[in-house]
């Protein structure tokens, strides 16, 4: 299927909107960008980065992505510091700002904000996180990293570990992986298991998955373990937290019991769920993963603005 020019003017809001062909096309363009086939693609383009809640990491990644491929940006780092939003509705802000730029990258504390913005925007909206809902560029860079590392996503055994209940990242990633022929192992304490509707989505896509409470013998088959943080606040009982949290940490000792080639991924920032002694092992993929946010975001911004067809 030829998707040349297909993304011009498109909003990137949610994995629910993306077909497998579209995902593959975005990844292919990201590989081209990483191979320096599209240098200066964003020359002459102006992007707005509207962060209605602070997320320094994601904002810096977008801003570095835009400038290093020739684009310019203006934006806000959080809504409290900017007068433009004082007393103004989200829609009015978007109607105004969309007249100043070629696309808007936005993060917002409320679920559905990016979709609401897209309803009124005259330029494409890229969702950089809407509350607990979606963060599609994170899941795209996760897929990109897996594909780059293994050459293929089909056929892999992938473990998702930690807070699978509230973790937006693992929900988006699960929806993305549901397009592929993978086997998932969901590793989480009872309290923080994957929500029913995500599991139903996996079933509807015929994705095989196991649910276990901690790393066991079976996990030797895993090619990837995607780790997310378990927050203390999720537990009413701190003693319960102390009891379970240790089971969801990766250290050199944990690695000794796993597939020697297993890759450890994490959306960052980490706290203590991955021991720093893992950083220097060939298993650690998380910093490389974060760096891949650059070509993936460059490809996306370029595609929706027509800078890359």
């Amino acid at each position: 299927m030829d998707l040349t020019g297909h993304f011009i003017g498109r909003n990137i809001i949610s994995f629910r909107d993306l077909t497998k062909d579209e995902i593959e096309y975005i990844l292919q363009k990201a590989f081209e960008v990483k191979n320096r086939q599209h240098e200066n693609a964003l020359a002459g383009k102006v992007l707005a980065t509207l962060f209605f809640e602070p997320s320094t990491r994601t904002r810096l990644s977008f801003e570095a992505a835009i400038t290093s491929i020739g684009g310019r940006f203006f934006g806000i780092a959080d809504s409290s510091s900017s007068s433009i939003m004082k007393g103004e509705t989200l829609k009015d802000t978007i109607k105004t700002v969309s007249g100043y730029c070629d696309a808007i990258i936005m993060r917002h504390p409320y679920e559905g904000a990016a979709r609401a913005a897209a309803d009124v925007s005259s330029v494409p909206i890229i969702n950089a996180g809407d509350g607990a809902n979606q963060h599609p560029t994170q899941a795209l860079l996760d897929l990109f990293t897996i594909k780059e590392t293994f050459g293929n996503i089909d056929g892999l055994n992938i473990g998702l570990m930690g807070d699978l209940k509230y973790g937006r990242t693992v929900h988006s990633l699960s929806m993305a992986l549901a397009h592929y022929n993978v086997k998932l192992t969901l590793i989480a304490p009872k309290l923080l298991r994957m929500p029913k509707d995500v599991k139903e989505h996996l079933q509807s896509r015929n994705v095989a998955y196991d649910e276990i409470e901690c790393i066991n013998e079976e996990c030797k088959k895993l090619d990837v373990i995607y780790v997310t943080r378990i927050q203390k606040e999720r537990f009413g009982d701190l003693q319960e937290y102390e009891r379970v949290a240790g089971s969801y940490k990766i250290s050199k000792a944990t690695l000794a019991d796993l597939n020697p080639n297993v890759k450890i991924m994490h959306p960052l920032p980490r706290v203590d769920e991955i021991d720093p002694d893992v950083d220097d092992t060939p298993n650690a993929l998380y910093f490389h993963q974060a760096h891949n946010g650059i070509p993936v975001r460059q490809a996306l911004v370029s595609l929706v603005t027509g800078a890359i067809k």
Partner: peptide, 8 residues
């Protein structure tokens, strides 16, 4: 915290 409950 749905956007529809936050903006009129």
């Amino acid at each position: 915290t749905c956007v529809t409950n936050k903006y009129h």
